[in-house]
Write a protein that binds this DNA or RNA. Structure first.
Length: 974
RNA sequence: GGGCAUUUAGCUCAGUUGGUAGAGCAUCUCGUUUACACCGAGGCGGUCGGAAGUUCAAGUCUUUCAAUGCCCACCA
């Protein structure tokens, strides 16, 4: 295997990520290393990528979620499992349609209607072909390792067919029905709209307070003979089918009692038409807004429609598609308007909604009690600026109660879980209060609903007879032209004359099938092969789903009930909900606000490896939001100290590698040996210490992976490599302690090589680069068994991507002599010595002598064996036991229980030494005081555990002994 | 309106079962020492958002208040 030429041939001072990263991306992908494999005996691990919008570009959320998934995939791949990371894109219905529509308008000044449905869909498909895989290319820059050979799309043949089958299966099971729903309608363009096509405008709306006469039935005494409703839309009053008040509203207690005892007994009269409508009780009516009485117009207001559903109210449509008053029984033909010249008759039918409002207001006379203004938002169609009209229309619904029940019981029996656990609340609450799912959308781009219609009106049948007929039959209705229309669900029409429903399915209907349909066809074709079956059997249900919390209900929940219904199985076992990346000042990022940070810009600046270090540090189980740690430059580009820090880490690692090679090549050639064959008797303090640290790290990391705590994984590896390995162990190696340098070389090599494997899931590029360099420089044949997973072709086994993940402490290692502990003691001495130098202003050019006094045999032996190390690290000339008499002035410090004396004759004046020692005493006193007051408290002695008391006493004694040493030395100085 | 989260050093954040607070960056000081100045070493810096409670002991557990942010719903 070749390695990146730039780094291999010329070991420069600085690591440059860009060349290395593109080199290894090319290498991995051209060798198809990430294509899924199936070995019968191997464990399986799979993830499906939440499909990004096909029009989308990589944003922070993708980068974070993708990195989390890639780390898990790479980790499990290195554990020797067969892995599949299934990726693809979503056709994203309305989102894509709007993008293409805008493009069409800009390029050709045409609307989609100009092209026609068929042509427009062709356009959208073509658009997808040329721009659709941009995000996939960007994923490669992140170093993601999915199976790029099986990119799926929610509109490819297999998938489209499955979506239709799913609909048909729901339909045949009786779970799908036709129902009414309020949609956003543009009376100018005569089209329904999605929320995305609506613009909000802040305006002052007029709130009219209108008197409706009251009547009881049978006649009861009530204190009021009218009720005042508040409305912004008086012109819809003829569509009212109730007046609602809050059952807790004391202003209406009389009425409420009456309604409670006899529902429907209190009636209000709609002005002008005098139609009688019931006064009803509904707790959603706000008592502190308007008059406390709400006119309910189910056909022309979404909220009123909900109220009508709750109370089984009829709905009356009184506006036509252009938002003009209809000619219908509810609407009076004329009203009388009082003017200065007397009454003027005004015809109502055919009046535009705003004009109708004006006339009605004028005609109300004394029944209009007040007009108030208040700030509100107005919904406008973004293309024509026409005010949206709520419009009652036919829609398709999925009945949710049974699906919800099954999903909840699957959750309750522990078949899947949320990480962090708190998100299960969102899931459970939503499902237990769920309404039926409206799955039809009045747009062109999407999966057209597989329902076909035909006229089946029997000859010589009256309209009344037709209505009777329909009541007793399924799957038919009477249309606006009084024709009997039958319908059925099918992939294709049974007769060419049958016509298909023009609506398309909600995008989430198709996304809900994602975790299983993507696994069923490798390339999206209709025919599934044996291999496809094997993939599905091996990798379904998937192991983990990683996503953000805002789509728990929209998507995650729907995947769960869809999987349970269609596959009789859960889609995934663990659901990871990762944080949302916010701007540095804690706001939501959005492209339109212009505060979004481009992950690709960060890659260009700091490298993908460094970027991934940050995403890993965010992890899964930290907060629900995380601020991007950066700021905008003068030239408006983003910079980040944190990303910079991780870039430096890559450089540090690269230099540690350079040093390691330098050392290994000293004194003849080096051949790595398996740890079992090392001469353990040659380990020195530092060797044992670093091995010990490393194996603790391995345990920590694997345990953290177990609970998806990637931030701990990241942090502990970072700290080990920089602080333990580079700052201390490499320094120790330079000193060449002990007789057998070959053993040290083995350990040096081992720690570096194994650290690379440990770090690889997070920083895949630099670890591969260095690992390949090591492989081409040294003979791996003695160690390959312990670092390479078995049963792999050379193609795979020669990449670190498939090397063994360090996941246990090998049997050879034990620290019988507490070398690790002794090393910590030595490190403490060196720290104290450095402190002494710094605080007393002693130059490093001055070599110091140290005399020690210790009762601890372990300390003595540590000092003897680490003598050279201490001398080198502390610039110490002489390190020896304290003789009876030493010339003063001396500085003194205590490490654990051993005392160290540093002669400072002619170097520092006595006052400075004294104040230095006094400072130490002051600090000790603080701790001593705390411990003493605790031990002096009878409550503590009585209640605290024995172990705790002994422990506290011991640490107090140690502190007191230290203090005494310092006091003695101060006295001696005087 | 409902839900969730956050509040610890100047900044960004760790802090496992309650035992008296840590890291990085920034800042200050010292240092060109044969991997790395994209470096090393050392120092300064905190009544852990407020209040109350439980406890011998609270950053940690309970209650409550406040600020900030996010998600969902709603706005006659």
């Amino acid at each position: 295997m070749s390695t990146s030429q730039t780094q291999n041939s010329d070991k420069t001072k600085h690591y440059s990520p860009s060349e290395v990263e593109s080199f290894w991306t090319d290498h991995w992908l051209s060798n198809n290393l990430f294509n899924c494999q199936i070995h019968p005996h191997k464990e399986k691990f799979s993830i499906v990528l939440p499909p990004p919008n096909v029009t989308g570009e990589l944003h922070m959320g993708h980068a974070l979620g993708g990195t989390i998934q890639d780390i898990l995939i790479r980790y499990n791949r290195m554990l020797g499992k067969d892995v599949l990371w299934q990726i693809g894109t979503d056709h994203a219905g309305i989102g894509t349609q709007i993008v293409v529509e805008k493009d069409l308008k800009k390029q050709e000044s045409k609307t989609k209607e100009d092209l026609g449905r068929h042509e427009f869909i062709k356009r959208t498909q073509a658009w997808k072909e040329s721009y659709g895989n941009k995000i996939i290319e960007q994923m490669k820059l992140m170093g993601f390792s999915p199976d790029y050979s099986r990119i799926r799309y929610t509109m490819d043949d297999h998938y489209a067919h499955s979506v239709q089958s799913a609909f048909i299966k729901y339909f045949d099971s009786g779970l799908i029905y036709k129902g009414k729903r309020i949609t956003n309608w543009c009376p100018h363009c005569l089209t329904s709209l999605s929320d995305l096509e609506i613009e909000k405008e802040q305006i002052n709306k007029k709130l009219y307070k209108i008197r409706y006469k009251l009547k009881t039935q049978p006649a009861n005494k009530i204190t009021q003979d009218f009720i005042v409703v508040a409305t912004t839309r008086p012109e819809t009053m003829f569509g009212d089918t109730a007046v609602a008040i809050n059952p807790e509203d004391s202003r209406f207690s009389d009425l409420i009692n009456l309604i409670r005892s006899q529902p429907g007994s209190v009636l209000a009269l709609i002005p002008f038409s005098n139609k009688e409508i019931p006064v009803i009780l509904d707790e959603h009516v706000k008592m502190d807004f308007g008059t406390g009485a709400l006119k309910v117009t189910p056909a022309h207001d979404a909220n009123d429609f909900e109220i009508a559903l709750r109370h089984n109210l009829p709905s009356a449509v009184i506006l036509d598609k252009t938002a003009k008053l209809k000619s219908c029984p509810e609407v009076p033909e004329i009203i009388n308007i009082k003017t200065e010249e007397g009454f003027v008759t005004q015809s109502l039918t055919g009046l535009d909604r705003y004009k109708a409002r004006d006339y009605i207001i004028q005609a109300l006379g004394d029944d209009l009690l007040a007009t108030e203004e208040y700030a509100q938002e107005k919904d406008l169609h973004d293309r024509c600026n026409t005010e949206i009209e709520p419009y009652l229309s036919n829609q398709w619904y999925v009945s949710m109660s049974e699906l919800a029940k099954v999903s909840l019981s699957a959750f309750d029996s522990g078949r899947f879980k949320f990480v962090p656990e708190r998100y299960s609340g969102i899931f459970k609450n939503w499902l237990s209060e769920i309404k039926d799912w409206c799955i039809s959308r009045q747009i062109w781009w999407g999966h057209q609903i597989p329902v076909f219609y035909y006229d089946d009106t029997p000859a010589n049948t009256s309209v009344q007879e037709l209505h009777q007929l329909v009541k007793s039959q399924n799957n038919c209705f009477i249309d606006d032209n009084d024709r009997l229309i039958r319908y059925y669900a099918s992939q294709s029409p049974r007769d060419p004359a049958h016509y298909q429903d023009p609506d398309v399915l909600d995008t989430w209907f198709s996304s809900a099938l994602w975790p299983f349909e993507t696994l069923k066809s490798e390339h999206g074709s209709l025919n599934s092969s044996d291999w496809d079956k094997k993939v599905y059997q091996s990798f379904y249900p998937t192991s983990v789903l990683a996503t953000a919390r805002e789509i728990i209900n929209l998507w995650v929940t729907r995947m769960i009930f869809s999987s349970l219904f269609f596959e009789q199985d859960i889609p995934f076992r663990d659901i990871l909900i990762h944080p949302v990346v916010q701007t540095p000042d804690g706001k939501r990022m959005s492209k339109s606000k212009g505060n979004a940070i481009d992950p690709l810009e960060m890659i260009a600046k700091y490298g993908a490896d460094a970027s991934r270090m940050w995403y890993a540090s965010v992890g899964v189980i930290s907060n629900q939001d995380v601020k991007f740690p950066g700021q905008k430059d003068k030239d408006k580009s983003w910079t980040s100290d944190t990303f910079e820090q991780y870039k430096k880490f890559a450089n540090k690692l690269f230099n540690a590698f350079k040093f390691t090679c330098l050392k290994l090549n000293e004194d003849g050639s080096f051949i790595p040996q398996a740890p079992e064959n090392w001469d353990k008797s040659k380990f020195n303090l530092a060797d044992t210490w670093i091995l010990n640290k490393f194996f603790v790290l391995v345990t920590t990391v694997n345990q953290a992976f177990e609970i998806y705590d990637l931030s701990s994984v990241q942090k502990s590896i970072y700290e080990f490599i920089w602080f333990d390995f580079c700052d201390w162990y490499i320094e120790a190696v330079k000193v060449k302690q002990g007789a057998d340098f070959n053993t040290q070389k083995q350990i040096l090599f081992y720690i570096l090589e194994a650290s690379l494997r440990l770090l690889h899931p997070i920083m895949p590029f630099i670890t591969e680069e260095i690992w390949q360099n090591l492989k081409s420089s040294f003979d791996f044949s003695n160690i390959s068994d312990s670092i390479i997973n078995k049963d792999l072709d050379t193609k795979y086994s020669s990449s670190i991507c498939f090397a063994k993940y360090p996941n246990s402490c090998p049997a050879f290692f034990e620290d019988n002599n507490n070398f690790a502990e002794k090393m910590e003691f030595i490190l403490g001495i060196i720290s104290q010595l450095r402190n002494t130098r710094q605080s007393l202003g002693i130059s490093w050019a001055n070599q110091l002598d140290i005399y020690y006094e210790t009762q601890n045999p372990g300390h003595r032996s540590a000092l003897e064996s680490a003598q050279a190390f201490v001398q080198e690290m502390g610039k110490v000339a002489k390190l020896s036991p304290k003789p009876e008499h030493l010339a003063r002035p001396l500085n003194v410090f205590v490490v654990e229980s051993s005392k160290f004396y540093v002669p400072l004759l002619n170097l520092v004046d006595i006052e400075k030494i004294k104040s230095g020692i006094n400072l130490k005493i002051t600090k000790l006193d603080k701790d001593i005081l705390g411990l003493e007051s605790r031990l002096n408290s009878p409550n503590f002695i009585q209640n605290a555990s024995k172990e705790k008391i002994i422990e506290t006493k011991a640490s107090l004694e140690q502190l007191l002994a230290q203090k005494q040493t310092y006091l003695d030395e101060i006295t001696a100085l005087i």
